[in-house]
Design a protein around this nucleic acid. Structure first.
Lengths: 142, 142
DNA sequence: TTTCTTGCAAAGAGTTTGCATTCCA
DNA sequence: TGGAATGCAAACTCTTTGCAAGAAA
């Protein structure tokens, strides 16, 4: 029998030191199975559509938690609502420190947001499937 | 005698088909001489500090105009206020289309926003003084 | 003169907060 | 049991809008 993957929302929440609650599991599930970018309002609608009730404020609090736990990416395009997406765990972008030589993953939500802003502004579809940014990491900056 | 540069706010406004008004010149001047990124509130304060009065709604409208005219870049970091910066005209970033081979300038405000988001999220200071994005331009996409 | 711009005041969207209650560990 | 999470309602921040008066072309 295969080992448990521990990549299910419950395990991920526990790893992040958060309690496993119905609201968190529901929001996580909605984000996992919904469209690419969902606003808080869309998450709320999807939750209601599933026959569950979670308060608006809880949705915002849960989204912020998931974002802080690294399970969800938050982006802002234009002046409207923020949009959220489930992070599959796959990460093809990297930060390369030219001082210590260390390479760390770059949060792909940031790259997605950047690519989207370039598309909005210039109509240019950037091929950013594997971006590497060079610079100085937090440790070497200090 | 040298030709007029026509890079002063008044000329730029006229080129953009906008009327040259006191409110627009004042906001433009504030952005040109202020700090790198200013929020609408900061612009308003700077205007008041200069002894001028411009209504809040006008500041928002002027900033949107200048943004639409390409004279000012608008960025959003986090969930707070939008920030605005005067576009000096210098542009060190490029979009390279792998289909037609054409290279066009990439709006540096977008890159600045991206670099800032990377710094906020990862504490990583990306060296993005001359970024080149490859991909497909608007014409080749259609 | 004609159209665009501004001020004023009010509304609106999106998000956050205080507090009592409920729930997970 | 004890601290964290939630619901509810209200507040709050940032931004936009309608309309009449004013200013640029």
């Amino acid at each position: 029998m295969a080992m448990a993957a521990h990549h299910d929302p419950a395990s991920l929440l526990r790893s992040a030191g958060r309690r496993v609650t119905n609201a968190r599991l529901t929001v996580a599930s909605v984000l996992q199975h919904g469209v690419e970018h969902m606003s808080a309002t869309e998450v709320l609608s999807a939750v209601e559509a599933a026959g569950t009730h979670i308060d608006q404020s809880t949705v915002y609090r849960v989204l912020a938690d998931l974002r802080d736990s690294g399970l969800v990416a938050e982006s802002r395009f234009g002046s409207g609502e923020a949009s959220y997406e489930w992070l599959a765990g796959a990460n093809h972008h990297h930060l390369h420190c030219t001082e210590c030589g260390e390479t760390t993953p770059l949060h792909h939500g940031l790259v997605d947001g950047f690519v989207e802003s370039v598309r909005e502004r210039h109509g240019f579809e950037a091929d950013a499937t594997h971006m590497v940014l060079t610079g100085a990491c937090e440790r070497c900056r200090g």
